[in-house]
Amino acid sequence: MPRELEELASQAFEELDKISDPKELETWQIRYLGKKSPLMQLLHSLATLPLEERRITGGRANEIKKALETGLGKRREALKEAQIAVSLQRESLDISLPGQPIPLGRLHPITQILKEICDIFVGMGFQVVEGPEVEWDYYNFEALNIPKDHPARDMMATLWIDFELETGDREMLLRTHTSPMQIRVMEKLRPPIRVIVPGRVYRHEATDATHESMFHQVEGLAVDRNITLADLKGTLFEFARCLFGSERQARFRCDYFPFVEPGVEMAIDCIVCKGAGCRLCGGSGWIEILGAGMVHPDVLRRVNIDPEVYTGFAFGMGVERIPMLRYGIDDIRLFYSNDLRFLKQF
């Protein structure tokens, strides 16, 4: 019996090694490990054998069964591997074929930059607020120290609304800057105030590559005790580094806006020539980014904030200029002509 057993085992292993088809593997399994297989029948009949023989034959038969099962498992694994390898090879794609087009939407570049700007200031504790684009002369000019016939009105050619009130003195216009919101915010809130105001502004201006009759500004205002020009500088320089990169240099120079005193213009070193002077910066090495200053005491008084107690700073920047600088866009009109070939680049 043991000899037949050994022969059966070696025959089984020999056949197993030759099997390359999973179906044959099943046949093999039935033949050698199935219920009716000699081995299994032997194991079943063990009970009828004398004790000693049962021990020897039984032990060996169980060993062989285990070995066959292990062999079967390995073979099965090997065949599966081979099969996967074959199908992987068969199933390879031309990966250069174009992908399924899925329509992709994008935000307008100005929306993107506005968010970027606002996020920087929000991180510095400013709150975003918005205001009307159609304004009273009072908010746009008068309350900002720009009475009628003030020459500073020349700096902002105005689009007036055809509107008459019986009194005749409240004139309606399209705001020429976001600064009227300084007044509206201070009328409503008491210090501490820290707001930024993004929005559209309008000018009576013939359009060309650098001028638009509609564009965006972001206004900033902070009012509290002990706010200084140094704070303004710190805030804006930090902003410039966040927006234009930490290697950017920024500078303040004296400038004039009727509603601030002292007044400031901030510039960054030219992103093209790094300050050496080129066409973009008009040879100066600097690019003007925004106007700013300390809120004028008369403006504070007008909204019943005591300039002897409180100080504040304000700034306002044109928004379109920033992506123009960043992406080298040479015509501001591209933003509102909404050509998808342009918009899809951002």
Binding site: Q127, R194, I227, D231, G234, E238, R251, P262, P297
Partner: peptide, 28 residues
């Protein structure tokens, strides 16, 4: 007004002499 005088002093000594500090007042 006095703010005008402050600007006079600032612009002659130079805006670059003014330090850059971060707001230290409470965040509203």
């Amino acid at each position: 007004n006095c703010a005008d005088l402050v600007e006079e002093v600032a612009r002659i000594i130079g805006y670059d002499k003014i330090p850059a500090t971060m707001l230290s007042t409470p965040i509203p």
